[in-house]
Nucleic acid binder design. Structure first.
Length: 706
DNA sequence: AGCACGCCGACT
DNA sequence: GTCGGCGTGCTC
């Protein structure tokens, strides 16, 4: 095994082989024999047809869209089809057999991307060690999508594939998938008749059309059935359908609606909470074409649905639609890409409306799917506001945190059913501010934001200096606005106030799915609201609106409105909603009028004017000062790009600075050029092998600007 | 990222 | 002579 002449020093269990020099054989290059020691494939068990496999090697961060050529041994030729998983030797010294030294380079995983007649590589090719399984997991569609996503986000193909392809599981692969069922009949429009263009949208799907729509769903539980009908209509056309939702709870709801509509066996549920074997089995059933409809969470956005006819995203404003692994693709954006590359219909639905979705409509790419005002008014609960400066002035109300209108609403609601109380998460409180004039409380030394975790010691969030004797620079007040009171304490207070009523809480660790249609107080953090059985909650109380609205984030208003509408959508049409927030603020007014689209359109106009995303495209580039500078200097940014910064990143207290960050902004239309420029620059650095300390992190559409 | 190669100084 | 320091460059 150790000598250069050992015939079977190569792959495990492989036939006697020597190292191949494809170039010498295939590309008739014997004239200029390579300087590398000639190692020919004597006895050459080499594939007769297309003896070169281009392989995407799955190895950490090294590769930036580089493919490597391997020789295809004859006995693997049949199995080594494009798209299959393979094992190859990779690493320095993989083919060097020097002075009796053992071969280096371990076996690592990869995918065959293409079979070719010859290689561009100058050196000797190593042979494929093994074809792991015959399953084609990286077909041309998947490859094209992964490439498009990698380009869109200035990331690598391998990183995208890591997100797109579930880990292989041999047991799941061994089982055959069931035979596909024939297309179901087109469904009745059901709840879609409530939306002007709804029935026509459904008909278009059933007829094989590719309509694109932004759907503002009416409050109440009907949306899951409507989404299922859109998918069923697509199936009826003989095509596949894919819906991506924010979490497992929501996926279960759509799953139930699909089962009710289509029965078992026509759709797959792809969520993270099923184990690896089940997950891969479901994925395989989709990949093999046994199942034509998929509902799932984030990773399902890449589901290899055959002959895709519809992609849908529900509640695209939910942050879990943004992947937290490089290159951080967003479900809505990926599905937009699929709609284009696969030529299929597109649906972005939600009870609220993101600025991005509004932009899809404004640009003419998608059509609005909305109900008329009258229908909205009939379906939505009545919303009233209580300005909190009123609350602040009223000492008694502040002590109890609830003004009398709120008490009244709760008391009334409890007569007929459950009442939802939405409280921002503890620690959600953004910046401390003067209670009287709302000037943000800042450190007197470094102007960092003051923080008071656990309502105790006041200190600076940047420099860590304690600030025990704060007073407002503007108005002289000594009082800071109270922290958000968590769900638990709110529940305790309300429980004391309504001793006869059961109090339930739903939050991060204990998320309730549903509560019965009986009087109860349900205290929940945003996003964890249980649905109420029957027609819904009798009333909802949305507390601490100021905390939602003052977060230092471009999306604070949009996000607050989204969460309020989500909670208020669980209230029955004749119910009451009280929101404790300034009635003059735009998101609060949009809630009262139940006009999420109007809000999104106005936000969009404002962001266009200010040059903010999503009208402009932005990228964040972060790294150590000099490295960042070098990167920016080397990158061939589009001429209309504008570099903001760099500014130091806020470090953790007492830790070394995490470096600096620059934002790069381009006007509409230059987004692709920006991504391409950043990717090229990053690839050049990688190829040069810059030290880890000089690594520069690139993120398109950074989430935390504001 | 690993890992091997190579060019240089200190050792048996 | 030979061992081994880490600086450089490559991985089909």
């Amino acid at each position: 095994m150790s000598s250069e002449n050992a015939p079977d020093a190569d792959g495990p269990g492989g036939p006697p082989q020597q190292l191949a020099l494809i170039r010498g054989m295939v590309a008739e290059a014997k004239a200029k024999a390579p300087k590398a020691k000639p190692r020919t494939w004597r006895g050459a068990a080499l594939a007769e047809e297309l003896p070169v496999a281009r392989v995407l090697v799955n190895k950490g961060v090294l590769h930036l869209d580089r493919l490597f050529d391997y020789a295809v041994p004859a006995e693997l030729s049949e199995a080594a089809r494009p798209g299959v998983r393979v094992r190859v030797r990779f690493g320095a010294g993989a083919h060097r057999v020097h002075g009796g030294r053992r071969e280096g380079g371990g076996l690592i995983d990869g995918f065959i991307v293409e079979r070719r007649a010859e290689s561009d590589y100058e050196g000797a090719l190593a042979a494929l060690a093994q074809v792991v399984s015959p399953e084609v997991v990286l077909g041309p569609r998947m490859l094209a999508l992964a490439r498009a996503v990698a380009d869109r986000y200035a990331g690598s193909l391998a990183d995208v594939l890591q997100l797109a392809l579930p880990p292989r599981n041999a047991r799941a692969e061994a089982k055959p998938s069931p035979d596909p069922l024939p297309p179901p009949p087109a469904p009745e429009p059901g709840g879609w008749t409530r939306y002007g263009a709804g029935p026509a949208f459904l008909r278009a799907l059933a007829a094989g059309g590719t309509p694109r729509a932004v759907w503002t769903a009416l409050p109440g539980p009907g949306w899951a059935d409507e989404l299922a009908r859109a998918m069923a209509a697509t199936l009826a056309s003989g095509r596949g359908a894919l819906a991506v939702v924010p979490d497992g709870r929501t996926a279960a709801r759509v799953d139930a609606a699909l089962t009710a509509l289509l029965g078992e066996g026509r759709h797959a549920l792809l969520t993270a909470d099923s184990g690896p074997e089940k997950r891969y089995r479901e994925w395989l059933a989709v990949n093999r074409g046994s199942v034509r409809a998929v509902v799932g969470t984030r990773a399902a956005m890449f589901a290899p649905v055959r002959d895709l006819g519809l992609v849908a995203v529900w509640d695209d404003g939910d942050s879990s639609h943004s992947d937290d692994h490089a290159p951080f693709p967003h479900v809505r954006e990926v599905l937009e890409l699929r709609a284009v590359t696969d030529g299929c219909a597109f649906l972005a639905g939600g009870t609220s409306c993101t600025v991005e979705a509004a932009q899809l409509v404004e640009s003419g790419w998608a059509r609005p799917l909305t109900a008329d005002r009258e229908t909205v008014r009939a379906a939505a609960p009545r919303v009233r506001t209580i300005g909190d400066e009123l609350l602040a002035r009223d000492g008694a109300a502040r002590a109890a945190r609830l003004p009398s209108l709120a008490w009244e609403t709760v008391r009334e609601g409890l007569k007929s059913g459950p009442v939802l109380v939405q409280v921002p998460r503890r620690g959600y409180a953004p910046r401390l501010a003067c209670e009287r004039c709302r000037t943000p409380a800042r450190c007197t030394v470094c102007a960092g934001p003051l923080e008071a975790p656990d309502e105790r010691e006041l200190h600076c969030g940047w420099c860590g200096r304690a600030e025990p004797a704060w007073h407002c620079e503007e108005c002289g007040s000594f009082r800071l606005r109270a922290q958000v009171v968590g769900a638990r304490r709110t529940a305790e207070e309300l429980g004391r106030a309504f001793p006869a009523v059961p109090v339930r809480t739903s939050g991060r660790d204990h998320v309730l799915d549903e509560v019965p249609d009986r009087p109860a107080l349900v205290v929940s953090t945003p996003g964890a609201e249980p649905v109420a059985a029957g027609a819904g909650y009798a009333a909802a109380l949305l507390l601490d609106g100021w905390a939602m609205l003052t977060r230092p984030d471009l999306r604070a208003g949009e996000e607050a409105l989204r969460r309020w509408i989500a909670a208020a959508s669980l209230v029955r049409a004749d119910g009451q909603v009280v929101v404790v927030a300034e009635p003059t603020l735009r998101p609060v007014q949009a809630l009262v009028r139940w006009d999420p689209v109007g809000h999104a359109v106005r936000e969009l106009a404002e962001r266009a004017q200010l040059g903010f995303p999503p009208v402009s495209r932005m990228a964040a580039v972060a790294g150590r000062g000099e490295a960042l500078e070098a990167f920016l200097a080397a990158a061939a940014l589009p001429p209309d790009a504008e570099v903001l910064g760099p500014v130091p990143l806020p470090g953790r207290r007492g830790e070394a600075s995490p470096g600096e960050r620059a934002l790069i902004r381009v006007p509409p239309g230059s987004g692709a050029a920006l991504a391409a420029a950043l990717k090229t620059a990053q690839a050049a650095r990688m190829a040069r092998g810059v030290p880890v300390a000089d690594a520069v992190r690139v993120r398109i559409d950074p989430p935390d600007i504001g």
